[in-house]
Design a protein around this nucleic acid. Structure first.
Length: 297
DNA sequence: TACCCGTGGTG
DNA sequence: TCACCAAGGGT
């Protein structure tokens, strides 16, 4: 059961005041980033830490300052520029989003949440984040940081559920400040609080602006009880093989022979399955002569 | 819903 | 050392 705060607004001022003082100076938060910069950052930050995104973000925006600039290049160039950020399908989707923005929205990142949501690679979180951070709109922005902050401060649990629940969305809407600019500030502030203070492993409650109102802390910071949180195995999986295969193609200038791909993984069945998967995903293009390259279309 | 999808830092 | 973790989305 989720406990409703008696007066939701009491959290707003301390969290936003804390954000005013402690917010990181990130490039996508600067005014010159614009909606496109915000969108690029949101794609890159999906499951990838800020520190690793920073250099790639700068290169990306310098090379493709507008959606149309990216849309004008082959998707394989986006995959190559993605580097080692991980989950390279995001690069493909960002390229697809840029193409859709160019074709359907006159080259401007749409302001409307529903239109954002219709873009490839843009889900509930990213649509709300772009609408809120880039356009100052009032949306519940529920990422892993915000979910953890609310789980602790309001629900009294160490961790949120594995999958986002309807109760969490309702709570987020309940806590959202009424005024649009305040709501946008709140969204960024709660995310930052989760990223810097209310961290997953060892939260710094001594530095938390709402520690005095935290339900989890008040309960004695009880350990997580429910089902174990989903772990991520990696070694020996298809994902690892796909990563090795794509790394070869990223670093190659032109098409690579089958033999170069065969060299990265011993086991032929899994290797073939991984390569087929990359082709099916549009990350790799097989050529008639038996070589492979990053996609030109 | 549960699972798939990369990569690297860290306690 | 190694399991956990990092501004999710698609199916």
């Amino acid at each position: 059961m989720t406990a409703m705060p008696q007066t939701p607004t009491v959290l707003h001022a301390p969290v936003i005041d804390w954000f005013d003082e402690h917010a990181r100076d990130l490039p996508w938060r600067r005014p010159e980033a614009g909606p496109w910069g915000v969108m690029v950052s949101e794609f890159m930050l999906q499951q990838t830490p800020v520190s690793r995104v920073l250099p790639v973000y700068e290169q990306w925006l310098a090379r493709w300052p507008r959606p149309a600039d990216l849309a004008a290049e082959p998707p394989g160039e986006a995959v190559r520029a993605w580097g080692r950020l991980g989950y390279p399908r995001r690069a493909l989707r960002l390229h697809g989003a840029a193409a859709a923005i160019t074709e359907r929205h006159g080259g401007e990142v749409p302001r409307d949440h529903a239109k954002l949501l219709a873009l490839p690679g843009v889900g509930e979180y990213t649509a709300a984040a772009v609408a809120s951070f880039a356009y100052g709109q009032r949306h519940a922005v529920l990422d892993t940081n915000v979910r953890r902050v609310f789980a602790r401060a309001v629900s009294g649990a160490q961790y949120p559920p594995n999958a986002t629940t309807a109760a969490e969305r309702k709570l987020a809407r309940t806590l959202l400040p009424e005024e649009e600019p305040v709501a946008a500030r709140w969204a960024a502030a709660t995310m930052e609080l989760g990223a810097l203070v209310c961290t997953a492993r060892t939260p710094s409650c001594a530095r938390c602006p709402i520690a005095g109102r935290c339900a989890w802390k008040a309960a004695g910071s009880p350990a997580h009880d429910g089902p174990p949180r989903r772990g991520q195995t990696y070694a020996g999986t298809d994902r690892q093989v796909r990563g090795k295969l794509l790394a070869v193609l990223r670093e190659a200038v032109g098409p690579v022979p089958q033999s170069a791909l065969d060299a990265v993984w011993e086991e032929p069945v899994q290797r073939a399955r991984a390569l087929d998967g990359l082709v099916a995903d549009g990350l790799v293009e097989p050529l008639a002569d038996g070589t492979y390259r990053l996609p030109l279309t």
